[in-house]
């Protein structure tokens, strides 16, 4: 059934292993419309701006893709984005009256704590999923709610400003004429993209997501890999959180809120299968870029502010349908 509906274009892309790139035409169309609407779209400043604004999302998408490949789920990522930098900033601040701790911790140490906390939260998720055999959905949903609450509680909901430059470095620095966050995201995509394809652990993710029982029989240490992946995704989320705080030079208590929806949208549009074992990072990246470009085009265009979200949602839906028709194969086996 699916085979007969297969267009020549799709078949060719599939045979080249480039099924994921079927989103590129959609990306070009959105870009073209954006340019027609407002020629400012196609300036290098604007394009770099899009990339920088997408960098945190793109890193979360790496984290979620790793988890989804395992046929698991992690909803808590967006709360790690909010909580870990808030904790770091709270420890650094010297003035309790502005919501800080008054401890005045060394920023380098605070950054280390940010990453450590991200890893610990990931480890806790992994422990509950692997050892306690709890449902990943419920576990990470609870952690999401818990951390959201802790982020608010820590500073009574205030926003922390006046953070040292070293704490903001990752999200604000430029390497060459390009923001560091773009470099970091690009390097991570390269690293994880190659790792998923050519490293034993990367292949183990696909094996476990496809058939975890068979993976165990084949000698893959399923529990260890799953646990490790949750830790890695916690770390990535902490990094994304630091970058986001750095970019806006403060930590808001709602930082990261609702990001998880866009994480899923990008991954799924990009061909990552929610049932595990299928999808690639290139695809997920095209999903992120599509969302980023779309967001930007909508902002530049004359869509009334209050309608932007609705239009955004509708176009995501269209992109999903488009991706199904052109690239994603239907499950016929």
């Amino acid at each position: 059934m699916a085979a007969s509906a297969q267009s020549g274009f799709k078949a060719r892309l599939t045979s080249l292993g480039l099924r994921e790139l079927t989103l590129i035409p959609a990306l070009l169309i959105v870009g073209f419309v954006g340019w027609l609407n407002n020629p400012a779209f196609l300036t290098s400043d604007n394009l770099l701006n899009i990339l920088q604004q997408s960098s945190e999302l793109s890193i979360l998408v790496i984290a979620e893709t790793l988890i989804l490949l395992l046929a698991k789920i992690d909803l808590s990522l967006e709360s790690i984005v909010g909580f870990t930098p808030m904790l770091g900033a709270w420890l650094i601040s010297t003035d309790p009256s502005l919501g800080g701790s008054g401890l005045g911790l060394n920023p380098a140490l605070a950054i280390a704590i940010v990453f450590l906390t991200g890893a610990l939260i990931g480890a806790l998720n992994g422990f509950l999923v692997v050892k306690m055999r709890l449902s990943p959905f419920i576990v990470t949903l609870s952690i999401l709610i818990l951390l959201r609450g802790m982020t608010l509680g820590l500073t009574n909901g205030t926003t922390l400003f006046d953070l040292p430059n070293s704490f903001l470095y990752l999200g604000s620095a430029k390497w060459g004429s390009v923001p560091a966050s773009i470099w970091i995201a690009a390097l991570l995509y390269l690293f994880f993209g190659i790792g998923l394809r050519y490293h034993r652990i990367g292949r183990a993710l696909y094996a476990i997501g496809g058939n975890s029982e068979a993976a165990r029989v084949a000698g893959i240490q399923v529990d260890r890999v799953v646990w490790g992946t949750y830790i890695a995704s916690g770390l990535l989320a902490a990094l994304a959180g630091l970058m986001l705080s750095g970019r806006i030079a403060s930590v808001v208590s709602s930082q990261g809120q609702n990001m998880i929806f866009y994480v899923f949208a990008a991954a799924v549009i990009g061909g990552v299968n929610l049932n595990g074992g299928r999808g690639r990072l290139v695809g997920a990246l095209t999903g992120v870029l599509l969302l980023g470009v779309l967001q930007n085009v909508l902002t530049l265009s004359q869509v009334p502010t209050f309608w932007i979200d609705a239009v955004y949602g509708a176009i995501i839906l269209l992109a999903l349908i488009f991706a199904r028709l052109t690239g994603d194969r239907a499950e016929d086996v």
Binding site: R203, N211, E213, V217, A218, V333
Partner: peptide
């Protein structure tokens, strides 16, 4: 293993 489909193959690989 005996049950090759369930415990043997890694389907998408």
């Amino acid at each position: 293993p005996r049950d090759r489909r369930r415990r043997g193959i890694l389907p998408q690989l």
